[in-house]
């Protein structure tokens, strides 16, 4: 004889028992992966020493808000445009031949070194202005300035690494 019943008596599990069961699970898992856990503890301590855990914790706790702020900042026109420039630059860099790039960068360094002592130009000029005002002594000085830069750069480009290193003061 078994009447239809719906009652299920679930044993009352105390908070301590639950905690004990969970700790048991942790202990079991920990002993299985002991090596990895010891390494991970070292990493954690290193991060704590350098204050990184605080930062991470704050980021995680305020994740949505932080992300919203970051996005707000990124959405500003000037930042967006910088990002665009950045992505384009990265793309352009990707297209450069690495040997050529090194050489060019060396040249730029050399050029900058060469002009480091010269005074900076006062204003930006259009091409036709430049052509018209070539006679102006100041313009002449500016042109010389640029030619100096190009000369320095050109020399670096033409010569081998060791010689380029020698360029400059």
């Amino acid at each position: 004889m078994a009447r239809s019943i719906q009652t299920v008596v679930w044993p009352t599990v105390t908070e301590e028992e639950k905690q004990e069961a969970r700790l048991g699970e942790v202990r079991r898992e920990a002993s299985n992966d002991a090596d990895g856990i010891i390494q991970a503890l070292k990493v954690l301590q290193a991060m704590e020493d350098r204050g990184m855990l605080d930062i991470l914790l704050a980021l995680l706790q305020r994740g949505e808000g932080v992300l919203a702020h970051v996005v707000d900042v990124l959405a500003k026109p000037e930042v967006t445009s910088s990002l665009e420039t950045l992505i384009k630059s990265v793309q352009a860099l990707g297209k450069l031949n690495s040997v050529g790039l090194l050489k060019t960068l060396d040249g730029v360094t050399a050029g900058l070194d060469r002009v480091a002592e010269a005074a900076p130009p006062e204003q930006h000029l259009g091409v036709y202005d430049v052509l018209r005002r070539l006679k102006d002594p100041d313009v002449n000085a500016g042109l010389a300035f640029a030619l100096d830069f190009l000369q320095g750069m050109g020399r670096a480009v033409r010569t081998s690494g060791t010689e380029a290193d020698a360029v400059g003061p």
Partner: peptide, 19 residues
């Protein structure tokens, strides 16, 4: 899984900067 508002802005940024 990002909130709708933030996601919308991210989509806009992605579109603006897309090269």
């Amino acid at each position: 899984g990002i909130e709708e508002d933030t996601l919308g802005k991210m989509i806009d940024i992605t579109k603006k900067v897309e090269p």
